[in-house]
């Protein structure tokens, strides 16, 4: 039987591309992750459950996933603002600011953690002020974790939204204004719907990065059990006690959680981008 698609495909190389993708993903992502599950499966169901549902571990899930979502949300708002300023306005030093955005990518996370701790600690520049003026402590509390997660997640939203904003013709905002829309209506009804897919992608990336973050958080968190312990720390703690199986069990749970959340975000993203692309 003849396969017509093979003969008439305008975009050749589908089989090759798919094969390459699968092999590469397997080698780089799937096999290492599978190892996590295999290692974890050496526990009995009961032991597994005991490890992953220990109160201290559950508390760390809440800290990790809760704060990561909050940090990604905050980054979404301010990332869009930053991208907007970079795209829409020209000001002296714009290129410099543009380059600064990527710094959290390049900095070793431990360095970021130490720097943030130094600034937000009781005797640090900002921490001193916050402590004296409003009695608010950032370093060694969950707030410190949030600050670190916002820091390392900043570039994602900016870099995903920026190209869309650059493509966005100011004419459509002018059209909205000429039809009587005020600025808020224009942003809400015209600009945001177009940015939404990119914004969701940026949110997902910032969230994923925050969930997996270890280095920068560990210095500023204070790591108090039940209060400011993140899940990656729980894994490291287990590893340091040579409890490899326990560590992988927690890692497996974390992976499943993250995967489900990312899947949801991706569905949202696909739905909104489908709307926008069709309307292009």
């Amino acid at each position: 039987m003849v396969k017509p698609s093979r003969q008439h495909n305008v975009l050749p190389g589908f089989n090759l591309a798919l094969g390459y993708t699968l092999v590469y993903l397997s080698l780089v992502v799937l096999i290492p992750l599978a190892a996590v599950f295999i290692k974890a499966s050496s526990l009995s169901v009961e032991d597994f459950w005991n490890v992953v549902s220990a109160p201290r571990v559950v508390a760390s899930y809440k800290v990790s996933f809760g704060l990561s979502l909050v940090a990604a949300a905050i980054n979404s708002v301010f990332g869009v603002l930053l991208a907007w300023s970079l795209v829409r306005y020209s000001f002296p030093g714009r290129k410099l600011v543009d380059a600064l955005v990527d710094l959290p990518f390049a900095l070793p996370t431990a360095v970021a953690g130490i720097a943030l701790t130094a600034i937000y600690a009781k005797n640090g520049w900002v921490g001193q002020f916050l402590e004296e003026q409003i009695g608010f402590q950032v370093a060694y509390t969950p707030w410190g974790i949030l600050v670190a997660l916002i820091f390392i997640g900043l570039p994602f939203v900016v870099r995903t939204v920026q190209p869309i904003l650059e493509d966005l013709d100011t004419e459509i905002e002018e059209a909205a204004a000429s039809l009587g829309a005020n600025r808020a209506q224009t942003i809400r009804r015209v600009v945001l719907p177009i940015l939404l897919p990119a914004l969701l992608t940026g949110f997902a990336l910032a969230f994923a990065r925050a969930v997996g973050e270890y280095g920068s958080v560990i210095f500023i968190a204070g790591n108090m059990p039940f209060i400011s312990e993140i899940t990656p720390l729980m894994i490291i703690t287990k590893l340091e006690q040579y409890d490899y199986v326990g560590a992988t069990a927690i890692a497996a749970v974390m992976l499943v959680f993250s995967f489900i959340l990312l899947l949801i975000i991706n569905f949202l993203q696909a739905w909104s981008s489908g709307r926008v692309r069709k309307g292009r």
Binding site: D169, E171, I172, E174, A175, A176, R189, G279
Partner: peptide, 14 residues
């Protein structure tokens, strides 16, 4: 209250 029509339509694509 002016109606403005743009060369490249400027329709809201979404």
């Amino acid at each position: 209250q002016v109606g403005f029509v743009f060369q490249h339509y400027a329709l809201f694509r979404h």
